[in-house]
């Protein structure tokens, strides 16, 4: 018998009413007396189903409705219409059993008590979630294993670095053993090493506990490393739901062939290479070309025939580019993320 889904969303919509004010003194005075409102549809007829233990990445440009969706799933925002069930509960009812089975980590906000060491927050959460002492000790030991908390959790939070704080933040969110874990940009602002550590931790945690994991991130690497399945949301609408690889393949059915030539050999033959596919990069000893999937075999054969190849790799185009293309194709030229990767 199939397990009931961990998350079930049917036709979810959320409309906000926002107050609008033009700049300038006159508008400021005018808004004292009459305010104009406009309706903004943050989430528009969204449906999806996520099985227990799945790891899903929410992708989309800024303001696409990812965070709103996440907050609806966590029961923080009431939907305007539609049905939502998470771990068998209706989130907006905020039943104790529901709240005990989820956790939300927000990279830009923190729940740790600022003036006290993180251990105090842990103890507080233990009392709030009513976790038995022995379970609590065991979980803390496990988290310590994965995150190396012991060195930092005794210092007042305000003295911790951003990375250390994030580790403790994760621990505080996971001490009650949530079955569904929502992560809103958990690696934002962290350096590369720390991003890697957080990613590894999340994967190990999900493997160990079988928890369902929903992630939004601006760093495509987070998504690639953690989420086999992605959900693309743009302007509140579902654009894509499925396998990450399939997504790249549908949007960009091309492959990239990167070739390194022997330094002592002849220079690359530009005309010959251009005949094979679109040139992304061409230097004295290095060339990157983009070719349709079915042409990869022929292209490689010809490259080997015409050049003194030292090394050759075939890869998918970077996810940033895939996303850019996806959003551009609806007439929306916004990039997938503000600081995205190398341009072709």
């Amino acid at each position: 018998m199939a397990q009931p889904p961990a998350i079930e969303v049917r036709s979810l919509s959320k409309v906000f009413r926002v107050h609008e004010r033009a700049p300038g003194l006159r508008a400021a005075v005018a808004s004292l007396f009459r305010r104009t409102y406009k309706e903004v549809t943050a989430v528009d007829d969204l449906s999806l189903s996520i099985a227990p233990g799945e790891r899903v990445g929410f992708l989309g440009p800024n303001g696409a409705g990812k965070t709103t969706t996440l907050k609806v799933l966590a029961g923080l925002i009431h939907p305007t219409s539609g049905h939502v069930r998470v771990a068998g509960h209706v989130p907006q009812r905020r039943e104790t059993a529901f709240l005990e089975s989820i956790a939300l980590v927000m990279g830009q906000k923190q729940q740790l008590l600022w003036d006290l060491p993180p251990v105090e927050t842990f103890a507080l959460n233990r009392a709030i979630y009513d976790v038995p002492q022995d379970v609590f000790a065991q979980r803390l030991a496990e988290l310590d294993d994965l995150l190396g908390l012991r060195a930092v959790s005794g210092k007042p939070t305000r003295q911790l670095s951003l990375g250390e704080r994030m580790k403790c933040e994760l621990a505080a969110a996971l001490l009650h053993g949530p079955r569904v874990l929502f992560l809103d940009e958990p690696t934002i602002g962290l350096d590369v090493a720390m991003q890697l550590a957080v990613r590894e931790f999340l994967r190990a945690y999900a493997d160990r506990t079988g928890a369902t994991l929903i992630l939004t991130s601006h760093y495509m690497d987070d998504v690639v490393a953690l989420c086999p399945r992605v959900v693309v949301i743009d302007k509140g609408r579902l654009r894509y739901d499925g396998d990450l690889r399939t997504l790249s393949r549908t949007v960009r059915p091309d492959k990239r062939i990167a070739m390194r030539l022997r330094a002592d050999g002849p220079a690359p033959d530009r005309a010959a290479i251009e005949r094979l596919g679109e040139v992304v990069e061409l230097e004295a000893t290095r060339a990157v070309i983009q070719v349709p999937q079915e042409g990869v075999r022929d292209a490689i054969a010809q490259l080997f025939a015409s050049h003194d190849v030292a090394d050759l790799t075939v890869e998918d185009p970077p996810l940033e580019e895939v996303m850019r293309e996806l959003f551009a194709s609806t007439g929306d030229a916004r990039a997938a993320s503000p600081g995205d990767g190398p341009r072709a």
Partner: peptide
């Protein structure tokens, strides 16, 4: 103001009490 009330609301205990 800081948006951290969300954390309070996510706790399985009465928010007013907390």
């Amino acid at each position: 103001r800081m948006g951290t009330l969300d954390f309070v609301l996510l706790k399985p205990a009465d928010a007013q009490f907390l």
